[in-house]
C-alpha cells in the first residue's frame, strides 16, 4: 500500500508532467485562462490518460514485448490514444448529448497532447504491474490537472493586476510558469524511492 502511495506522490508532485517533464505545455498555456475550463480540461485529460495507459500496458505486455515489436511502440501508442479519445467522445455523446455539447470541446485537444504519449512511454520504462501502471498514469494526470488549476488561478489574478505593457499577456504568463516550476522543484527533496 505504502509503495503505491509513494508511487502516486512521486508521479503527481515530484516528477510532475508539466513542471518537471515539460510535457503538455500547449494546453498548459492555452486552456488556463479560467479555473472552470482548466478543471474541465484537466478531468478530461485525466480520464484519457488513465484509460489509454491501461490499453497501452496491455498491448506492451502481451504484444510488443513478447514479439519484439518495440520499434512499433510509438505508432501503436498513438493509435491507442486516438482510439481512447474517440471512445470517450462516442461514449459521452451516447450517454448524454448535453454533456457532449458542453465538454466535447476538450476532447480533440487531448489527442495531440504530448503528455498522454509521454506518460505511456514512461510507463514502459518503469516495467510496472497493471495496477501500479494505472495508478501511476492516474497520479501523473492528477498532477497535470493540479498544475493547470493552480496556473489558471494565478492567471485569473494576473488579469486584474497592473502589468507593464512589455510583459502583458504571454510573457508574464511564462514568468509565472517558471516561478511555479521553481516552487514545484521543492518537491524533489521528497524521497519516493
Amino acid at each position: 500500500m505504502q509503495e503505491y502511495i509513494l508511487l502516486m506522490v512521486g508521479a503527481a508532485l515530484v516528477n510532475n508532467v508539466i513542471l518537471a517533464r515539460f510535457l503538455g505545455l500547449c494546453s498548459f498555456m492555452g486552456v488556463t485562462t479560467r479555473i472552470d475550463t482548466a478543471i474541465g480540461m484537466g478531468l478530461a485529460t485525466t480520464f484519457v490518460i488513465t484509460v489509454s495507459s491501461m490499453g497501452n500496458w496491455g498491448v506492451e505486455q502481451y504484444l510488443l514485448e513478447p514479439y519484439h515489436l518495440g520499434y512499433l511502440r510509438t505508432v501503436t501508442f498513438i493509435l491507442i490514444i486516438a482510439g481512447a479519445v474517440q471512445f470517450t467522445e462516442m461514449t459521452v455523446r451516447k450517454v448524454s448529448p448535453p454533456l457532449f455539447q458542453m465538454l466535447g470541446i476538450y476532447l480533440p485537444l487531448i489527442t495531440t497532447n504530448c503528455a498522454v504519449l509521454g506518460v505511456a512511454l514512461i510507463l514502459v520504462e518503469g516495467k510496472m504491474t497493471f495496477i501500479a501502471a494505472t495508478l501511476f498514469a492516474f497520479a501523473s494526470s492528477l498532477g497535470y490537472s493540479l498544475v493547470m488549476v493552480i496556473f489558471a488561478g494565478l492567471r485569473e489574478r494576473l488579469a486584474l493586476a497592473e502589468v507593464p505593457r512589455l510583459f502583458a499577456g504571454p510573457p508574464i504568463g511564462f514568468i509565472v510558469a517558471s516561478l511555479l516550476a521553481l516552487a514545484f522543484l521543492g518537491f524533489s527533496g521528497i524521497s519516493t524511492t
Binding site: 478543471i39 474541465g40 478531468l43 478530461a44 485525466t46 480520464f47 488513465t50 458542453m102 465538454l103 492516474f138
Partner: peptide
C-alpha cells in the same frame, strides 16, 4: 461545467479505480 466534468469523467474513473 464543473458538475458536467465531474459527472462525465471523474465518476467513471473513481468507480473504475
Amino acid at each position: 461545467l464543473l458538475k458536467a466534468s465531474g459527472t462525465a469523467y471523474a465518476l467513471p474513473l473513481v468507480i473504475m479505480l
